[in-house]
Design a protein around this nucleic acid. Structure first.
Lengths: 339, 339
DNA sequence: GCCGCCTATTACAACGATGTAATCTGTGTT
DNA sequence: AACACAGATTACATCGTTGTAATAGGCGGC
């Protein structure tokens, strides 16, 4: 059995509350008693019971991070940073996956373990609206992703702008048959929608007619899903000039299929991704992509979350972090709007 | 404010305990009162306070998963499965990263949040011993990784055997200058040690003299670390015949360097990895690797953990899961011991 | 030498849920 | 009609911690 404040108190010859005072350090304790208590703490190897503390204080020191699928490198990198930043601030992180079933997001936001966690960082799959369209009593919460609403704190990126910039950069090489991979058929992914929008805007900008056939659907945002979708596409259509994949994972699957079918990247077809995950940088050829500082995302998300925990009625804030077009070998030399 | 059993009880005109009975379903409740209570539950949108329940029951329904670095694809895939399996069984999962500082493992095993979690699944970095060399009072705990001790429940793989088999398969093509990448200098990684051991045994088996220069050190098990280490190696040595990387992430970094320096894989040099992560399958060329069923790892780890929670004095169990040598393009056609 | 004040410490209650043991209700038996 | 009994429901205490308010102790001032 673990020692409790009571045990420590008995051993040190003081009251439980004094032990608590020593442990928490908020109430002044005389040097003499502090020494006694600290000795007892060490001898009994005291560890506070966080359930009890959570019950008493109403805060547990644990936040939840909800994302579609932890196995996706992008999610994993993001989670890594959130865990790291949270830990630096003394928070534990409980991971929830929402990918399998769409109801899970809703459940998390409304009921769920709401009392074992002090707050929620949510990377939504579906249209963000679905999750946050909840009447009262939201837990302290920050959304990650596209900035598209004003009711909940959010840290995101201008996906439309980024997708547009990438598409324009591809078009800047003179290529005209620019395909996108990752458009979703069935249930809508917020991310897919906004990136598709950026792509279409860029085509307009560049005066390239929009060809719906070049929007390649792919429900599953993994290399496997991408490979299947692209192989299927190539069986029916001619090779496009350029391929903008909505995530690096999709692009990695695409590069694999292109290599296997003997198409040279970037000579025959440019390939670009989105997210800047580690494996994309080391893909063959290295992947051109949109990069966002994930550590900064985590830091900002946690900052907003702690602010929200401190003041639950502060006006919601939406942050759009800067992004960067990173050019690597998979597109040869292209240039963003700056050049 | 969230509703409590008391509120629900008042609304339903029953005692708090009856509400608890309805919620938990362990004690029989008459049809009439159950209906009343359920109505009240729904109206007040009752959510049990898990801190209180945890305090009372001594169990929180949350387990911790501790691993070196969540951003590593292998860890991420593993974590994904653990989260999924745990969720199916009604557990939440709290993630802890131990990579940054070695003391963290020890801290987790001994003190830490030990009362907000019911158990711990630990993927150790250092020699397993360090973490489990603890006197009494271990929390319910399962180790993931090399099976090398008998004091704590463990789910692992025969790393020595797998590394040996891979090395032999590479040698089976007639190649003699077989390098390994991932040996660690400074603090010892348990995994690196056992895989190195398997490699050396295979060289003996194959009658290939051991050349220490071909054991390429790489502390950081990421594509970036690997790329740096291999580039450095190539600047000083001739290209080896074959390269066995201790993880797929390392291999991905290696493929990138080899491609950039114009060396053809597998014609000039065979490359193999370990772990079978998704991005390895879609690397260019696709990566030969050792595959272990990560879902099965997660299932077994969770099974052992729940068994341990139920009976804290049962004899420790060590499971070695089967592995499979998966041959892909990065080694051309090689064959394992079976063929 | 007594009083008052400031500080360190204490007793007590409360956070919310639930196991235990006691009470209550209703049914069936003689 | 009285009694025993099973099942449903309840009161109470408890898990470990900490805020509140009351107490104890020490010191200076008059």
């Amino acid at each position: 059995m673990r020692a409790t404040v009571k045990d420590v108190a008995a051993r040190a010859g003081v009251s439980p509350k004094t032990v608590s005072n020593v442990v928490n350090g908020l109430v002044p304790v005389s040097e003499r008693t502090r020494a006694k208590v600290e000795a007892a703490l060490a001898e009994l190897d005291y560890v506070p019971n966080l359930s009890a503390r959570g019950l008493r204080n109403g805060r547990t020191g644990v936040i939840a991070l909800a994302l579609p699928d932890l196995a996706t490198p992008y999610s994993a990198e993001l989670a890594h940073h959130v865990v790291e930043v949270a830990h630096e601030q003394g928070f534990g992180v409980q991971i929830e996956e929402t990918g399998r079933d769409p109801g899970r997001e809703f459940e998390l936001v409304t009921k769920a373990r709401s009392n074992l966690i002090d707050g929620l960082i949510l990377n939504p799959v579906d249209l963000d609206e679905s999750a946050i369209r909840v009447g009262g009593n939201l837990p302290p919460m920050v959304l990650l992703g596209e900035v598209s609403q004003r009711r909940v704190d959010q840290v995101g990126v201008d996906n439309v702008g980024a997708a547009r910039e990438m598409t324009l950069a591809l078009a800047g090489t003179g290529r005209r048959r620019i395909a996108v991979l990752g458009c979703v058929d069935r249930r809508s992914s917020a991310t897919a929608l906004v990136r598709t929008e950026g792509y279409r805007l860029a085509l307009q900008d560049a005066g390239i007619p929009h060809d719906p056939a070049l929007e390649i659907a792919c429900d599953e945002w993994t290399p496997a899903g991408s490979a299947a979708a692209l192989a299927d596409f190539l069986a029916r259509h001619e090779l496009p000039d350029a391929l903008f994949c909505f995530t690096d994972s999709l692009a990695i699957g695409a590069l694999s299929v292109l290599a296997a079918s003997g198409h040279r990247v970037p000579e025959e077809i440019l390939v670009a991704g989105f997210d800047d995950v580690a494996d994309g940088q080391y893909a063959v050829p290295a992947l051109t992509t949109i990069s966002v500082d994930k550590r900064a995302m985590a830091e900002n998300a946690l900052r907003l979350l702690t602010e929200r925990m401190a003041d639950r009625r502060r006006e919601p804030v939406q942050l759009a972090l800067p992004y960067k077009l990173v050019v690597r070998a998979s597109t040869g030399a292209i240039s963003g709007p700056g050049a």
